[in-house]
Amino acid sequence: MTTIALVTGANKGIGLATVRQLVERGLTVLLGSRDLEGGERAAREVGARPVQLDITDDRSVRNAAEFIGSEFGRLDVLVNNAGLLVRKPALEVSAEDMRAEFETNVFGLVRVVHAMLPLLRLSAAARIVNVSSDSSLFSKTTDPGSMFAQSHDSFVYSATKAAVNMLTVKYANAFLADPALRHIKVNAVTPGYVATDLNNFAGVRTTDVGARVSVHWATVGSDAPTGGFFEEDGPMPW
């Protein structure tokens, strides 16, 4: 039986590379994107199925879940890849300035998980991958010599990704406590410093390399851990 996967924010960058690699592994992949036309072009390029999905919009997420349910009857893999970075000096950021990034990176993730959970429940071995960032780590942001300690303009982004890490742990604990949901494994991953439009293509890794960690945790077996935070080479020091 074919594994059904959904990747959010997948019409470009790491998301598109993730879709491509999952398709190459034989999965049926739904490529989620806010812009349906752009998503359709990207999906044709990699052999995926396009789905209009704006994770900040309740109706869009609900419609996507209904489509997946009617078309496939379940969801086996969810990769929460969609993310937003708005650069602004930390000391200039207001509470209002924070809303857009939290709406996408935190509330959007929860919105999608909540809507897809009934479909993940129906999978025999569901997997959720939450894409986080090195910039969420205390071990790096408290190192004065680290680029993350000096990146004052990613003030909000780093906070949202720290929230993603904690949500991952809380979801994992809740799933393990529910006999009907223990088959769902959820982990956070970091693709590393990848050249994407989020960093004006300053990153040193390619999107194909950055996508590998998401693909790995989207396809792990039943003996894999849950509730962790990983890079391609293994666990990250929180």
Results as ranks from 00 to 15, higher is better:
111 R>T: 06
218 A>Q: 05
204 V>H: 05
235 P>A: 05
91 L>D: 08
203 G>F: 03
112 V>C: 05
218 A>T: 08
16 L>R: 09
121 R>M: 02
79 V>P: 11
172 A>R: 05
81 N>S: 09
90 A>M: 07
229 F>I: 05
148 F>Y: 14
162 A>M: 08
4 I>Q: 09
140 K>V: 08
146 S>I: 01
70 S>Q: 15
11 N>F: 01
199 N>I: 00
133 S>V: 02
131 V>N: 07
236 M>E: 02
161 K>P: 01
156 V>L: 00
173 N>H: 14
103 E>M: 13
38 G>S: 02
118 P>V: 12
98 M>H: 09
237 P>A: 12
204 V>F: 02
23 V>E: 04
20 R>Q: 10
87 R>F: 01
129 V>A: 10
126 A>T: 12
31 L>P: 03
233 D>H: 14
7 V>Q: 03
121 R>E: 07
134 D>V: 13
99 R>W: 09
77 V>K: 10
61 V>H: 02
159 A>H: 05
85 L>T: 11
81 N>L: 04
193 Y>W: 15
155 F>G: 00
109 L>K: 08
221 G>C: 11
37 E>L: 00
204 V>Y: 04
235 P>S: 10
151 S>I: 02
61 V>M: 08
3 T>I: 13
214 S>C: 12
146 S>N: 06
131 V>Q: 04
32 G>E: 00
24 E>W: 11
230 F>K: 02
145 G>N: 14
216 H>D: 05
134 D>I: 13
65 A>Q: 08
223 D>L: 13
236 M>K: 15
227 G>T: 07
58 D>C: 05
96 E>R: 11
151 S>C: 02
105 N>R: 11
114 H>M: 14
178 D>I: 11
103 E>I: 06
198 L>F: 05
176 L>W: 00
119 L>C: 09
75 L>K: 10
156 V>D: 00
146 S>M: 01
5 A>L: 04
9 G>C: 08
134 D>G: 14
28 T>V: 15
59 R>E: 15
55 I>E: 13
85 L>D: 01
180 A>F: 06
137 L>T: 06
173 N>Q: 15
219 T>N: 05
224 A>H: 12
233 D>L: 14
74 R>N: 04
152 H>Q: 06
237 P>E: 12
49 R>M: 14
6 L>S: 04
61 V>E: 12
66 E>T: 06
30 L>I: 14
183 H>Y: 10
224 A>Y: 13
230 F>A: 02
41 R>Y: 10
150 Q>M: 09
163 A>W: 13
168 T>A: 09
206 T>Q: 10
211 A>Q: 05
46 V>M: 05
138 F>R: 11
104 T>I: 07
42 A>I: 04
123 S>L: 12
165 N>H: 12
167 L>M: 15
52 Q>P: 02
219 T>P: 04
16 L>P: 01
144 P>A: 09
180 A>G: 10
112 V>K: 01
